[in-house]
Simulated assay, not measured.
Amino acid sequence: MQLTGNTILVTGGTSGIGRAMAEASHARGNQVIVAGRRKGLLDEITAANPGMAGIVLDIADPGSIAATAREATERFPNLNVLFNNAGFMPFDDAGAPVDDTVAHDVLTTNLLGPIRMTSALIGHLKAQPRAVILNTTSLLAFAPLASAAVYSASKAALHSYSMSQRYMLRDTSVRVQEIAPPWVDTDLVPAKGDARAMPLAAFVEQTMEKLALDDEEVVVDFVRQARHSIATDGSTPSSRA
């Protein structure tokens, strides 16, 4: 992925990885549009980053997705990067009754959200000379965390979808890259001093470097060995937990 000269729409851009990546991209001179549910946070972020734009988006609402796609392309006709980052991670117990409402919300946000957002923009992206779809999955897409089974499954499904999407877009101007974070110290799952969590600033720095290499699957050095082990034997301690 070229790291400059883009117009980038970031879903889930008001906190955590989304906000940090949005600000890092903005600092490189890209036009960045952050999208999220909380207008107050959008206003705060755009005020702190002059030139950045904000659009209210409820990624779980197909009508809001359609409206965001229309507004983004009308205001920013050069939009060429969609960063599907919105998501949330509740804990659960797959060995007991699962809360159906929570499971539905996780799949709607983490899986259907990126599918619907991309569907709303794919025609526009394919018309650009160069375009990129970035899908945020997780290391848990490859080795699930037993105590977050539905979240892990949603990310595994998005990983699979990304592979199919990449193949179907192989003869177009649109590239598909997948960012698979480890546990990063954000408000998604705060580390509270746990050394197993990667600092957010280090994650963003390494991710930007690897995006520039055009890797299809972006995995930071912090967990590259773990990802290699998963690919080799199909299991890790978290998947066996």
Rank of each mutant, 00 (worst) to 15 (best):
P97S: 10
L125V: 06
N30E: 07
H228P: 00
S229I: 10
L57S: 07
S164M: 14
R37K: 14
G87V: 05
G36A: 15
P90H: 04
I122W: 01
G193Q: 14
A94G: 14
P114F: 09
N6H: 14
D43S: 12
D185I: 01
L188D: 02
A202T: 12
A131Q: 09
K126R: 15
P199F: 08
T207P: 07
P182N: 03
A146L: 03
V218M: 02
Q177N: 13
A94H: 14
L79D: 03
I55S: 05
G12Q: 02
T172D: 14
K210G: 02
A202R: 14
T14D: 02
R170G: 11
N30Y: 06
S162Y: 00
G54L: 07
A191D: 04
E71K: 08
A241G: 11
K192M: 11
M117V: 03
E216N: 05
R175P: 04
V98G: 10
G5N: 12
I17G: 02
S15N: 04
A156K: 02
S239A: 05
I133Q: 01
P97M: 09
A143H: 04
E216R: 03
H228R: 15
S235E: 10
A103V: 07
F91V: 03
T46N: 08
D100C: 15
A24N: 04
T118E: 05
P144W: 05
L111K: 02
F203R: 10
D215P: 00
A201D: 14
D194G: 09
R19V: 00
K192L: 13
S160K: 09
T7R: 08
V32S: 05
M117K: 00
T186H: 04
N80D: 12
G54A: 09
T101L: 12
M168E: 15
L79F: 09
N84C: 10
T73A: 13
A69K: 11
I55W: 10
V10P: 07
V56M: 13
A157K: 01
R130A: 14
T7D: 07
A35L: 13
S173G: 08
Y151M: 01
V81Y: 03
A86W: 00
F76E: 09
S147G: 00
N85M: 03
D99L: 12
R227P: 08
A146G: 05
R37A: 01
T11D: 01
R116T: 00
E23T: 05
M198E: 14
M163T: 12
L79K: 06
A53T: 09
A69Q: 08
S238Q: 05
G63W: 08
V102R: 09
L121N: 04
V98F: 15
I230N: 07
S229N: 15
F76H: 05
E74P: 06
D194L: 10
D233I: 13
V56G: 12
L82F: 04
E71Q: 12
A231I: 10
D61E: 11
L169N: 04
K210N: 05
A22Y: 01
